[in-house]
Simulated assay, not measured.
Amino acid sequence: MDRDRYVPFTTVFNFRDLGGYPTDEGRRVRSGVLYRSDGLHRLAETDFGRFAALGVRRVVDLRRTDEVANYGRVPDSPGLDYHNVCLQTQAWTAAEVAPGELAGYLTARYAEIADEAVGGAMARVLRLIAEDTAGGTVFHCMAGKDRTGVVAAVVLSLLGVGDDTVADDYAASRFSEQRYLAWRATVAPDAPKYLPSTSDPAPAETMLAFLADLRSRYGSVTGYLDAAGFGPADRALLRTRLLAPN
């Protein structure tokens, strides 16, 4: 994982460009078009200029409505198109999971996210990403790892990015978790634990197992997207939007 993909902000820790990854057709994902992130409600006023300079014009917030109500949303600004699409209605925490069982636990939760999103949320998110907007798009949840990781995996796989690369992109969230937890300890030292005591909160094998399970149950990633209502014409638009020309 190229650490240069990170866009450094003061209190947002997992903002990354999804561009540059190679595909199985010898093409690359466009840079500066699609970003993934953790909670943009924490974006500090001192970082507004850096965020604006990226040219992001659309934010897709994957959090539940109660999370948006409790924590707020990305600060509004002229020309910023904001959408809240709840990707998962049931809250969960991995705090009580033993470190050696974390990958299996997360794989099961990601399968639940994918299955629930078949009901319409996944197609809506992907259409927002595929639309030919004037600027870039960023999608995010709270940590930028779980719900965001599922969407990133589906998008990159659809574009033809290999599973190992998709898993490496997912696993890079470990670096942001370390930064976030250090910051959280200073501002909320008594906050409850939400992850087990493990040095790797985003094991790559989690994403490999998730993609294998998705294919096993839906036949392929495109089979999953067909079930989700994101058909061939939608997928062609997304590929046009996100793949650099040969």
Rank of each mutant, 00 (worst) to 15 (best):
F210P: 00
G229Y: 08
V7F: 06
V7Q: 11
N70S: 14
M122F: 05
R217I: 05
L126V: 13
V154L: 14
T10Q: 12
R73K: 08
Q90N: 10
A233F: 02
V33N: 05
L225S: 09
A103K: 09
G229S: 13
R58D: 04
T46D: 12
C141A: 01
R241G: 00
I129R: 01
L158E: 11
A123W: 01
M1N: 10
S157T: 12
R57T: 15
G49V: 14
S77D: 00
R28C: 12
A209F: 00
D47C: 08
T46H: 08
E131R: 05
R28N: 09
F230L: 11
V68K: 01
H140I: 09
D81A: 05
F15L: 14
S176P: 04
S37H: 00
L80D: 06
H140P: 12
G219F: 04
G231P: 09
L40M: 13
L181Q: 15
A91G: 07
N14H: 01
G104E: 02
D66F: 09
D190L: 11
G120N: 06
D213C: 03
F48Q: 10
S37D: 07
A202T: 15
L87A: 11
A171N: 10
R30G: 11
L211E: 03
L208N: 08
C141F: 04
A228V: 02
V154F: 03
G26D: 09
G79M: 10
D169F: 00
D226H: 04
V118T: 14
F9A: 09
A123K: 02
T206G: 12
G149V: 09
